[in-house]
């Protein structure tokens, strides 16, 4: 199986304070990995390194065959607070991602509407973000990120601000999209149940500076209480 993202010997210092120390991680192509840890453990730092928003103090990030030098459309990002452009409609936000492809206007519009339909938001295409609920906004953000057809989808606590019901619906939607598209997903969360419900693999990050405390495969089927308590122990020891 090919490797979509490889982190080698990553260290990050913020000023003189170490944030992340000698971290190695590989994401196989098409995998769904949850990066779990308490706030301030460096899990968002890892995501920002892969996205290309941050440069490591030491070590290397490789995506596909090439080293990461900055953000690129091959690595899509879904932000915690959606980062939708409030001056564009839902469709306009998705079209922003499609512009790069140089499609004719009608085709761009058609694809944007299809992307919104895929996340269950065909009706809201003409609405502005301020007119949409948090869950709907995150659907638009997901549609926008996927419209750019990234190989890797990076998600930074994307459902953290949603209520429980909306959150569980978004989790179902994300699982379904992942199974259909086979995009490699790196999902950052501090919620152990969310990590177990979504991912094939859970990586626990913790400590100061942050490092990998545990790396476990999540078997298919209903969540196992043993695995949950094992991961909870690792989380607690961070």
């Amino acid at each position: 199986m090919s490797i979509a993202v490889r982190l080698e010997g990553l260290s990050v210092r913020h000023g003189s304070a170490p944030v992340l120390e000698r971290t190695d991680l590989e994401l196989p192509a098409g995998s769904f990995t949850a990066l779990l840890g308490p706030s301030g453990c460096g899990k968002s730092t890892v995501l920002n390194l892969v996205a290309g928003f941050l440069r490591p103090t030491e070590g290397r990030v490789t995506a596909g065959a090439a080293p990461v030098r900055g953000p690129a459309p091959e690595r899509g990002v879904v932000f915690q607070h959606y980062a939708l452009f409030p001056w564009r409609t839902a469709r306009g936000n998705v079209e922003f991602a499609l512009k790069r492809l140089g499609l004719p206007r009608a085709e761009r519009r058609r694809r944007a509407l299809a992307a919104l339909a895929e996340v269950g938001l065909a009706d809201g295409a003409g609405k502005y973000p301020a007119q949409l609920s948090g869950g709907m906004q995150q659907r638009v953000a997901l549609a926008r990120a996927l419209a750019a057809e990234p190989e890797v989808l990076l998600m930074d606590e994307p459902f953290g601000a949603l209520d429980a019901l909306t959150r569980s619906r978004m989790q179902d939607l994300l699982r379904e999209l992942w199974q259909r598209r086979g995009t490699t997903v790196l999902f950052v969360t501090h919620d152990i149940d969310e990590a177990l419900a979504l991912a094939e693999r859970v990586v626990v990050l913790g400590g100061t500076p942050g490092r990998v405390l545990a790396d476990r495969a999540v078997p298919a089927g209903p969540p196992s209480p043993d695995l949950r308590s094992l991961i909870a122990r690792h989380l607690g020891s961070g």
């Binding site: 953000p71 690129a72 690595r75 990002v77 932000f79 980062a83 452009f85 922003f96 750019a148």
Partner: peptide, 10 residues
């Protein structure tokens, strides 16, 4: 995040 989103969307 607006600028980051724009950059990661190419």
């Amino acid at each position: 995040s607006y600028l980051r989103a724009a950059r990661s969307l190419g």
